[in-house]
Amino acid sequence: MSLKRKLEGEIEIREGASDAFYDIYKSKPHLVSHASSHFVQSCDLHHGDFGTPGAILSWNYTLDGKAGVCKTEIEKVDDENRLVRQKVIGGDLMDDYKSLVFTCHVVPKDKETSIVRWIFEYEKVRPGVPEPSAMMDSVLAAAKDIDDRHHGIKK
């Protein structure tokens, strides 16, 4: 029985924030905590350089009221298509998933908006493990938080 799955989600952000969002997620992920501290408390570089394949990042986050740690390795950066792909290589998420890959893609929609599209590809360790929908909701909300912060909207 295959427990491999894919979950996709997207959210609109203002076009003026799309480059800023991509730059923060790709090259300055430690700044995510400034806009979305209720979700991401910190992101530290453990190996390599921010924004380059092979870089290893450690994320401290809160999901459903529980503190967690996630270690990721950047697999792919495509500046032309504004896409970053990270593979989870350690942390709490590995308790439930054999493999988990996050792909973030920023796509222009029209003159005023862009779409932040997230794709999670994962394999559960056993039946009954919940879908990572809470994580999806949180990364989408963080994109909106970065958009709002970029435009000076305080929450």
Rank of each mutant, 00 (worst) to 15 (best):
M1A: 12
M1F: 07
L3W: 00
R5W: 03
R5S: 10
G9Q: 01
E10F: 02
E12H: 05
E12R: 06
I13D: 00
R14E: 12
E15W: 11
E15V: 07
A17M: 15
D19M: 11
Y22T: 01
S27M: 13
P29L: 02
P29Q: 06
L31R: 12
L31E: 11
V32A: 07
S33M: 10
S33R: 13
H34T: 15
A35C: 14
S36Q: 04
S36L: 12
S36G: 15
S37C: 11
F39C: 04
V40I: 15
Q41D: 08
D49N: 09
T52P: 01
P53F: 01
I56V: 15
L57V: 05
W59F: 09
W59Y: 08
Y61C: 01
L63R: 09
L63I: 13
G65P: 10
A67D: 11
V69P: 05
C70W: 02
K71H: 12
E73K: 13
E73T: 12
I74H: 03
D78A: 14
D78P: 13
E80W: 08
E80V: 11
R82L: 01
L83A: 03
V84H: 01
R85D: 09
K87Q: 07
K87S: 07
V88H: 03
I89Y: 05
G90I: 09
D92F: 10
L93D: 00
M94C: 13
D95M: 06
D95N: 14
D96A: 06
D96M: 07
Y97N: 06
S99Q: 14
L100V: 07
V101Y: 12
T103Q: 11
T103H: 07
T103D: 02
C104H: 02
H105N: 13
V106C: 02
V106P: 00
V107H: 04
P108E: 09
P108W: 04
K111Y: 10
E112Y: 10
E112N: 15
T113D: 00
T113K: 15
S114E: 04
I115G: 01
V116K: 00
V116E: 00
V116L: 04
V116A: 01
R117T: 02
W118P: 00
Y122I: 03
R126V: 04
P127F: 08
P127G: 05
P127N: 09
G128W: 12
E131H: 15
S133A: 11
M135C: 13
M136Y: 03
L140G: 08
A142N: 12
A142K: 03
K144P: 08
K144M: 05
D145V: 04
I146S: 02
D148H: 12
D148E: 07
D148C: 06
R149S: 04
H150Q: 13
H151E: 10
G152P: 02
I153W: 10
K154R: 08
K154G: 03
K154N: 11
K155C: 15
K155F: 07
